Simulated assay, not measured.
Amino acid sequence: MPKKKSNFRQDAKSIIVQVKEPDELLSFLFKVMPNRSRNSVKSILGRGQVMIDDTIEKQFNYKLKPGQTVTILKNKAAIKQDALIGLQILYEDDDILVINKEAGLLSIATEKEKRHTALHQLMKYVKRENPDNRIFIVHRLDKDTSGIMLFAKSNDVKRKLQDNWKTMVKERTYVALVEGKVSKKEGYITSWLRETKTHVMYSSQTPNDGLLAKTRYKFIQGNADFSLLEVNLETGRKNQIRVHMQDLGHPVVGDKKYGSKERNAIGRLGLHAKLLAMHHPTTNKLMTFEADVPASFIKKSK
């Protein structure tokens, strides 16, 4: 007598199958994914990409019952992402996690806000799979800056990334929507950055009077009111791009702290971390992560 077929649905993120008869989970997965190798299927199960009725299950011999729903996530980052607010996971493996952070979300806690941060949400996210899991912040983005952020999954990986940042990170590219028409198509800004007692950064041209900061920029498009620039960091100082755009005479849109005097035309800070290219801390493979330029930046600079 032929076996009954399982109900089967597939989309860009997952395969969803309704269980029709008793089976062990691994055996069931082999049948559902006949084109994958046995090791590949085992890896998917072991990485926590399989859910039974919305609960992650890793046991190969889990006893399936008729009526249960098995969801196979094509990307581990899709697990429970619906619970994340203000960020999207772009990549995840056993060592690192890369996100696209929205403007308005804090990277880490402050005295006033402890929970609605990228770090707090991601800590809860990884603990759903294992209560012992942790997340470590490698670098920060300002609250009102959007784009690529990198996190480590162990303290050892965090230290390796931070201690070797200059050699492991090959490119950090931002886009900045700035006020006015930038006449020079590309430029190079260097200064020494210092911080006031009120935590405002400022430039000094006196050698060694602060931390050396180097920024390259390239004009993408613009009009009489706004310019869209591609900005590459050679150093990663606090508020570096914002200070250097102020030095250029074209402050970042919405940046009252660093020289903006115009009405904020986009309702946010005009700064976005577009690209991060880096060598993986374990495999040494060169990896590139990108986050699309906000539509408002493009629209205002046309």
Rank of each mutant, 00 (worst) to 15 (best):
K76L: 03
D209F: 09
D11A: 04
V19S: 05
L211D: 12
I108T: 15
Q59A: 14
I99E: 01
H250F: 05
V175M: 06
K170Y: 09
L229F: 08
T282Y: 08
A291M: 06
K5V: 14
R134P: 00
Q205N: 14
D94E: 15
R242T: 12
M201N: 01
S6V: 06
A273D: 05
Y91T: 09
L73R: 02
G187C: 05
P22R: 15
T206K: 12
I298P: 00
N208D: 15
R263D: 10
N284Q: 13
V175R: 04
V253Q: 09
K257Y: 11
K181S: 13
D95E: 13
Q10M: 09
T110K: 14
D142N: 14
I52T: 06
K112M: 07
L64F: 11
L233W: 10
G249E: 02
K112Y: 08
I44F: 01
Q10T: 10
G48N: 00
S227L: 04
P251I: 04
I79D: 02
H250D: 02
S107T: 15
L269C: 08
K13E: 13
R268G: 11
Y125I: 03
A295W: 02
R216E: 15
G222W: 04
A277Y: 01
R216D: 15
R268F: 10
K76P: 00
N61Y: 12
L73I: 05
S43P: 00
V19F: 03
M245N: 08
M201V: 04
F60Y: 11
L97T: 01
G86F: 09
V98Y: 05
L177F: 04
E92I: 04
D94H: 09
A77N: 08
M287F: 10
A176I: 07
K197T: 03
I16A: 00
N223R: 14
A152M: 07
T190V: 12
G210Q: 05
L87A: 10
E129H: 13
V138S: 08
R47N: 08
T235W: 09
